[in-house]
Design a protein around this nucleic acid. Structure first.
Lengths: 134, 134
DNA sequence: TCTTGCGCTGGAGTGCACTCCAGCTTGCAG
DNA sequence: CTGCAAGCTGGAGTGCACTCCAGCGCAAGA
């Protein structure tokens, strides 16, 4: 039975020690096991759950919703259909984020091109007329 | 010379009135013109700059960086090369965001599939062995 | 043995980006 | 003329997600 020290979990997950303790406090992590002197020892399962947390967090799921999801996971297999609903709803939001980000990036790139065009006009000829909106 | 009332700008840009005032306070908007009795009247230029702000904000540029960019814009055409650098650096960050978001979405969808597989196993056969990490 | 570093707790503090409020003035529809 | 929606100011408050701190305990390598 392998166990991870807090330092190892920081290393593996990229979460800070304070963040791990915070996640435990708010119930995003179930109470972490301790060794004889009270130091945390994370299991493989804790670490892999943190992988899930990272995925959800980095795709913009609010902490409160992750906590609710964590509760479903702890409640056992009969919550799997509900978990699927939560994840599918989240997936749709991610899809929207992606579409929006792509659109905004296009606008950004148009702006960059516009600036580059302006720069290519010989000095003094460009007179600030015909400004573009985006 | 068309002018926009605060309400019209809220309508057009989707920023709240408080947000517009906040943006003016911190210098993300230059001081907005006023009518005889002190109410704001936004110009076409103000509104199109707000379009730019929305694009940068929605792609994750921090307010402080937008303010610096606004200062470059106000400083005149000789800052165009520097503006291009700022926007290109931002564009690269957006590219990274997109790549990361796509990866995370894939992981999320794998998880959803995993759950759906689990659900398709007849009742009682699935015994929580072979849990997957993500 | 010593000292360096990892870890512990509860609670306070931070940074960002707004958002709200009281108390007031203006604009305009009926 | 009246009433009410829209707008004004300065300043305080909010929500989120951490992040930091003081003061302490344990442990292991030089």
């Amino acid at each position: 039975m392998v166990a991870y020290t807090p330092g190892q979990v920081v290393e593996e997950t990229g979460f800070s020690l304070d963040t791990l303790r915070y996640y435990e406090r708010i119930g995003l992590l179930e109470p972490i096991g301790r060794n004889a002197s009270g130091q945390r020892r994370f299991t493989e399962g804790d670490v892999s759950w943190l992988g899930m947390v990272r995925c959800l967090r980095d795709t913009g799921m609010p902490i409160a919703e992750m906590v609710r999801f964590a509760e479903l996971v702890r409640a056992g297999d009969q919550t799997i259909p509900e978990r699927v609903e939560v994840l599918e709803a989240h997936d749709r939001r991610v899809e929207e984020q992606l579409a929006d980000l792509r659109d905004k990036q296009e606008a950004l790139q148009r702006k960059i091109h516009y600036y580059k065009d302006v720069m290519s006009i010989p000095d003094g000829v460009y007179d600030a007329q015909g400004q573009q909106a985006l």
